[in-house]
């Protein structure tokens, strides 16, 4: 009887090699706790601004060492004019993130980064709208920066502005920040979550303990 023998190299070659991480979810499930079944063209499907100003971002992409947790955080930080540590990504939790076909083919930067940038820029513009309406001032005199909207002698934090007005608005065709104006994107940044890795606190799949296991 002929035995099927494969070397590790052959197995990798037959699989096509490379990083392939799949996260499947039914196409109808594009909900998270905050977007409540929103379609993916709503800001709330992609990000949520908490009352204390903490921004939670939802994406079906998965971090496996390619550092997209860092690069996607940069994308959101740039458009929302926030420091990196004000942003937390929920990645690949299919109960909470919009539908995604998977993390493969180096597609995160060309596809997911623009989606999140547009959602974040839409959120920024919505915050400016909310501030202008609250203070009855011309929106062109307002600036969103570092978690606060200021202008015309007024100021309010993002969290305060978003508090009673969930970002239940469509993602808009707003202009994205030009590369020449980038302050966070396009430059090396410390790895988000790096400290947990070097201290042994980062939980890999094999480090997780299910209840009663």
């Amino acid at each position: 009887m002929k035995r099927l023998e494969l070397t590790r190299r052959e197995v990798l070659a037959r699989l096509g090699g490379g990083v392939l991480v799949l996260a499947f979810a039914p196409a109808c499930v594009a909900q998270n706790r905050n977007s409540g079944g929103q379609a993916n063209d709503r800001i709330a499907a992609w990000l949520h601004i908490g009352p204390e100003g903490k921004v939670t971002v939802f994406t079906g992409k998965v971090e496996v060492g390619q550092d997209i947790r860092t690069s996607l955080t940069q994308a959101v930080a740039e458009e929302l004019r926030l420091p990196m540590d004000a942003i937390e990504l929920v990645m690949g939790d299919t109960d909470r993130v919009p539908f995604d076909q998977g993390t493969f083919g180096s597609r995160t930067t060309p596809t997911m980064a623009p989606i999140l940038r547009r959602a974040a820029a839409s959120a920024r513009e919505t915050l400016l709208d909310l501030a202008a309406a609250r203070w009855s001032v011309d929106r062109s005199g307002l600036v969103a920066e570092g978690g606060t909207v200021r202008g015309g002698g007024h100021s309010a934090t993002y969290g305060d502005l978003a508090k009673d007005q969930p970002l239940d608005k469509p993602v808009r065709e707003v202009p994205l920040t030009e590369p020449k104006d980038w302050k966070v994107m396009g430059r090396p940044m410390p790895k988000v979550g790096g400290r947990a890795i070097v201290t042994g606190r980062h939980a890999y799949t094999s480090d997780l303990r299910r209840p009663a296991c």
């Binding site: 496996v64 060492g65 390619q66 550092d67 090396p188 790895k191 790096g194 890795i197 070097v198 980062h202």
Partner: peptide, 10 residues
């Protein structure tokens, strides 16, 4: 290790 970014998956 943090400053050199000496990790990918870690």
């Amino acid at each position: 290790f943090l400053e050199e970014g000496a990790m990918q998956c870690g």
